[in-house]
Design a protein around this nucleic acid. Sequence first.
DNA 1: GTTTGTGAAGTATTTCACAGCC
DNA 2: GGCTGTGAAATACTTCACAAAC
Lengths: 243, 243
Amino acid sequence: MSTRRSHNGTDWPAHGNGAGAALFEAAPAAIAAADGAPPIPDIVIRRLPIYVRTLNALRQRGVRSVSSEELADLIGVTAAQIRRDLSYFGKFGKQGKGYDVGFLATTISRILRLDRQWPVALVGLGNLGRAIAHYRGFAPSSFTIVALFDHNPRNVGDTVDGLEILPDDELTEAIEREDIKIGIIAVPADLAQEIADRMVRGGVEAILNYAPVILKVPPHVTVREIDPVSALQSMTYYLSRGD
Amino acid sequence: MSTRRSHNGTDWPAHGNGAGAALFEAAPAAIAAADGAPPIPDIVIRRLPIYVRTLNALRQRGVRSVSSEELADLIGVTAAQIRRDLSYFGKFGKQGKGYDVGFLATTISRILRLDRQWPVALVGLGNLGRAIAHYRGFAPSSFTIVALFDHNPRNVGDTVDGLEILPDDELTEAIEREDIKIGIIAVPADLAQEIADRMVRGGVEAILNYAPVILKVPPHVTVREIDPVSALQSMTYYLSRGD
DNA sequence: GTTTGTGAAGTATTTCACAGCC
DNA sequence: GGCTGTGAAATACTTCACAAAC
């Protein structure tokens, strides 16, 4: 009650969504497309990047063609799941042959809209934020951090890899001006919701949240949580009692 | 085919499991307990840390009692889900009243075995690894990083917060000696599987994996993936086409 | 002979809805 | 009167298994 379905990997209560990429996995389901198109389950969408990554690795190794069985073994899922996942989008394989590695990688990348570079705003440049800013893995994956913000006047004005840290009260305006649709939150828990609100006001539609809070956002905004602590805290349940 | 069910948030192929805390969410299900006990779905286990976190926040605010409805609104799920999740473990509420915040927090913490401190080994002390090592959020959450390892001789011998970085070929032995059950992998993708193998050989049963690869581990080992890139790459699917 | 794509079947997970307790 | 705990129903997701394509 008082929840609506969203594609945040969870439901969305009166004022916001909950989500949990890493640890808090409620039952997701894509919202029905505005048109009459088939609503693809969010869980399928979340698997696609792994398919792309694995296909790109194969391509790099010179592999031209792959069966659903081979791909499944590499990834650790069933072949049927891969075939079913792909079938939501079309028919990309050849019976008796499998899939063309390069074609499938390109196709899924296009489905995910990874065939372009996306500008990203990063908020919070403490330890974690700086590690994120320095991370070299985003750029080759279609994301370029183009704006940095921090609350602490001590950090504002600093330069990280040639980008100046701006005061976080300029967030909304800057995001709107630069037409940024993706934000990364790396601020303390108690500031995160306020930052999310400002991002949304500026037009952000996708938030990667490193703060340990469930953000409340409107339904058109997707949130994925990065929550290593919760991940650890759920694994302890399974540890053997041998000590 | 060639997969067995595991509690890794995914299935487990011939030699290993796949998993994806943050991004790669296959259909999980707890393995049946060795005894005749009820097999609690992994997805429920993964929600418990959020319940604990939220309850602790309430407790800190002086709130004594909470209904499933209130808790649900705070977290962004349905009240029925919270009641169902808790019912796997017992009856903790009072009709007409709700749940005692402190009691429920303590109870779930005990279920998750968070009523003690767990020693953790961290492997890889590049940018990311150092940010993890410096992170102050693990200790209050039941985890203490007690051993650091790196492959790079340039890093070995360095001290991070008073802990010396050891060469990663001492990994297995040190983990076994110190009876460490939890490992964090923050090494480049191409080294991650080898590190996971060594951890498992040393007796690790839970791995938090920051490397962008699906690790293959035996079924008694739980893996959660932290994969911000895949998280971003799945969100782009939902971005509006307004530009 | 191999492997896809997919109805149909099988599981898993969520939600409904209400009897029973406080 | 409010709220839990839970059968039963509804949904969501995965897997089976096989006809069709190569």
